[in-house]
Design a protein around this nucleic acid. Structure first.
Length: 407
RNA sequence: GCAAGUGUGGCGGAGUGGUCAAACGCACCAGACUGUAAAUCUGGCGACCUUGUGUCUACGGUGGUUCAAAUCCACCCGCUUGCA
């Protein structure tokens, strides 16, 4: 289900097959945490370039016709469109609830999105809402994590098993194991989080296989198809019949713990491996060496996912370490905050110097956003219309795809 | 015309004798944002410079009281409301 087509140095070009089509790697999946990339509609994401009339795309979206040109992976690749999105187990469990989404036909149907969805497990929220947070009452035990929603106060529990169950109910294409995500910590804490992460990964894998088996037993009454737990070397890997399960490497800035975590996780065996955590130290240095170190120890034949990475600079570096998949809030959040990434450099569109700038946002990238002048987008931000954030989001996603494929 | 009230920085609006270059908003200027507690957050925002517990000019105007005035007094000017 992952096939490397070409290597340039340590950089890899491949195809990752999922239930909702192929992802040509390297690929960046924007964060649609709660089921949308903020400010964008699915039909916009599918066609950042604005090549097709929105109505045509809407029609295709509604039909989920993935054989059409627009959804053809090669064409999508050629025009640098978004190939997958990331949604979050914790957030969707919190609202509107995974049962609700299951009843509405799964996440793809609910949000009207025909391409692959990677679902994060909530492991990052173990960090952001528990370890990092102050004044919140969540806690982590060996059994799982108990969260308190910072806004509603609602309490939610996530175990390795429930994280997998929920991701099945959502209809995820690429699932992620629950992990104990940490920031920089002392060695003892990191060690504990690594052991816990490995233990949880095991439990996730067991649950994952149970769920596949149940699904197979159901399917078996209708056909002879059988889900394979490891189809990575299968010639017909394009026609996969099960979701993928990715593990997450923890260990903070501790190289030996990272290495140990890789060893243990690869023993269990997963469809892909994420570099997890937010391992920057107090000096806010992005840990390139550490990412390289981990990538070198991950299996060659499995996709490597740099979770939450990053800035364009970070991504370009990680490509050369052999990472294949990326996600990050940066293009969408920074867009909403007025920062555009362009082929001509960063543009803080609200800055006074753009008030009377008639040049297009980015003349070198054919996108919906590049059809507008900086002074107009500046204006949109000044009057606080969300169209400004929408256009910059399109620009940034376009730019992130550009660096993946052209730099 | 009489009466009452009111006049503060680009705007709204606190402050009614010293700790006021003046709270708090807005606007403006800049910055941050990395598996989304984030359409958010942080700084700056009279002028000048040797960037400091620095100098100067400032709360409608002019004069006065006081060691000290945005704050008290007098007159003037403007605005608001009420009564003629």
């Amino acid at each position: 289900m992952f096939k490397i087509l070409e290597k340039r140095g340590d950089r890899r070009y491949g195809i990752l097959s999922t239930l909702h089509g192929d992802i040509y790697t390297p690929a960046f999946g924007p964060d649609a945490t709660r089921g949308l990339i903020k400010n964008l509609a699915p039909h916009e994401i599918l066609d950042l370039s604005g090549r097709y009339p929105p109505i045509e795309i809407l029609r295709l979206l509604a039909s989920h016709d993935t054989n059409h040109d627009i959804f053809n992976n090669k064409l999508r690749k050629q025009y640098n469109e978004i190939q997958f999105i990331l949604s979050n187990t914790y957030h969707l469990m919190s609202y509107p609830g995974y049962e609700f989404i299951k009843e509405s036909g799964g996440l793809h149907t609910f949000i009207n999105w025909p391409l692959p969805i990677l679902t994060d497990s909530g492991g990052f929220q173990v960090f952001s809402l528990i370890h990092k947070a102050q004044n919140l009452k969540g806690k982590v035990t060996d059994n799982g994590a108990i969260f308190q929603n910072p806004i509603t106060g609602q309490k939610l529990e996530l175990t390795p098993e429930s994280a997998i169950d929920i991701q099945f109910n959502l209809g995820s294409d690429i699932m992620v194991v629950l992990d104990d995500c940490r920031h920089y910590q002392d060695h003892k804490e990191l060690k504990r989080s690594v052991y816990r992460t490995i233990e949880w990964a095991k439990r996730c894998k067991i649950r994952f296989e149970q769920r596949l088996k149940e699904k197979f037993n159901k399917l078996n009454t209708h056909s002879n198809s059988q889900p394979h737990s490891d189809a990575s070397n299968n010639e017909r890997s394009h026609r996969i019949d099960r979701p993928l399960l990715f593990a997450v490497v923890q260990g903070g800035i501790d190289y030996s713990l990272r290495e140990y975590c890789v060893q243990e996780l690869t023993k269990i065996g997963f469809d892909g491996y994420g570099f997890g955590g937010w391992a920057i130290n107090e000096k806010e240095y992005f840990p390139y060496d550490l990412l390289k170190f981990v990538a070198e120890r991950l299996p060659e034949d499995k996709p490597r996912y740099a979770m939450g990475v990053g800035t364009p600079t970070n991504i370009i570096q990680c490509l050369d370490f052999g990472y294949d998949l990326f996600d990050c809030v940066i293009p969408s959040r920074n867009a909403r905050h007025g920062l555009a990434y362009t082929t001509q450099g960063e543009v803080r569109i609200q800055n006074a110097k753009y008030k009377k700038d008639k040049s297009p946002l980015d003349p070198n990238l054919p996108s919906i956003a590049s059809k507008y002048t900086k002074e107009y987008i500046h204006h949109l931000f000044k009057i606080q219309d969300s169209l400004g954030g929408e256009l910059l989001t399109i620009q940034n996603l376009k730019y992130f795809n550009y660096i993946l494929n052209n730099l």
